[in-house]
Simulated scan of single mutants.
Amino acid sequence: MRLIDSSLAAAFIVSSLVCGASSPGFAGEFNRVLSPGDAMPRWEALEGVDGKRHAAADVAEAKCVVVAFTCNSCPYAVDVEDRLLALDKAYPDGTVQLIAINVNKVAEDQLDAMKQRAQDKGFEFPYLYDPSQKIAKAFGATRTPEFFVFDQQRKLVYQGSFDDSPSGKDIKTHYLKDALQATLAGKEVTLRETVPIGCNIRYERQRRRRRD
């Protein structure tokens, strides 16, 4: 039995039809690349809003890593920002490390705009930019926001939405927080995948070469 809120499932089906997505070839229930238990894709030398280059090795000491694909321009991503700030502040000892990554290349999502957004909101977690978009593809990320939780062995224990309320109102189930609490307590995560609800990541289209 798939443990997923029916309204979110319906939203996923609608968005998939609109975007022309098809179900065959998925690794997880809602991800074409990663499924629970897979190793965390690595990133190297991604520039952050702090002016430094960041790598996956920087968070080697954390017991859990949360990777959030997000951006400035999507209203769903904006709605989750306060929840990201609260999550980051809940683990000041570094037990959980939050990494936010943006790969969109439109003007409002580029690095200068990211720096301004991070300053305005008071982000203290790394907010990284990958204009190559390779890291998002390695995760199979399709939405902003979309979340991935990895345990101390950097195995995927949860992927999908932050919680059951894209707007952050009337939250009934805290998907991501529940996954973190179970993992930190050495317990199995019962709900490991949910539908990511948000804007499409703006992947660049690859032009097909004309055959001679």
Rank of each mutant, 00 (worst) to 15 (best):
V49C: 08
I135W: 02
I4V: 15
Q152R: 14
L17E: 12
Y203F: 13
R192E: 14
L156W: 05
D151L: 11
R42H: 10
P41V: 04
Y127R: 10
A55M: 05
Q206F: 08
I171D: 00
Y76E: 03
N104S: 13
V96S: 03
P145L: 12
K89G: 06
V189T: 04
K187W: 03
D58C: 11
D130Y: 11
V106C: 04
G186V: 05
A27Y: 03
P196I: 14
R154L: 03
D109V: 08
R83M: 05
F147T: 01
Q181H: 14
D163Y: 04
L180Q: 10
K52N: 09
F12T: 07
N72S: 08
P145M: 12
R83E: 02
P196G: 07
F139K: 07
V18F: 09
D120Y: 06
A62Y: 06
G51W: 08
V67H: 01
G186N: 10
C19S: 15
A56P: 00
K115L: 07
L46Y: 03
L85G: 01
L180M: 12
V49G: 03
D130F: 11
P75G: 12
A136L: 09
V157Y: 01
M1K: 11
I171R: 03
N200P: 00
A39S: 15
D164E: 07
V14Y: 12
Q116C: 02
K172F: 00
Q116T: 13
G48M: 14
V189Y: 08
E44C: 09
I13P: 00
N104L: 07
F123P: 02
Q206G: 01
F162E: 00
L176G: 05
S23L: 15
V195A: 15
I101L: 15
V149M: 00
P36C: 10
H174N: 13
D120V: 09
P75L: 14
R210N: 04
D120N: 12
D93L: 14
F150N: 01
R32V: 05
L46Q: 08
C19N: 14
L180C: 12
I171Y: 02
D170V: 11
G48T: 15
G28Q: 05
G198N: 08
R207V: 15
E108M: 07
G25N: 09
Q110I: 04
V59Q: 11
T142P: 02
K115I: 15
A45F: 06
I135D: 00
L98E: 07
Y91G: 09
G168I: 01
Y76K: 07
V78S: 06
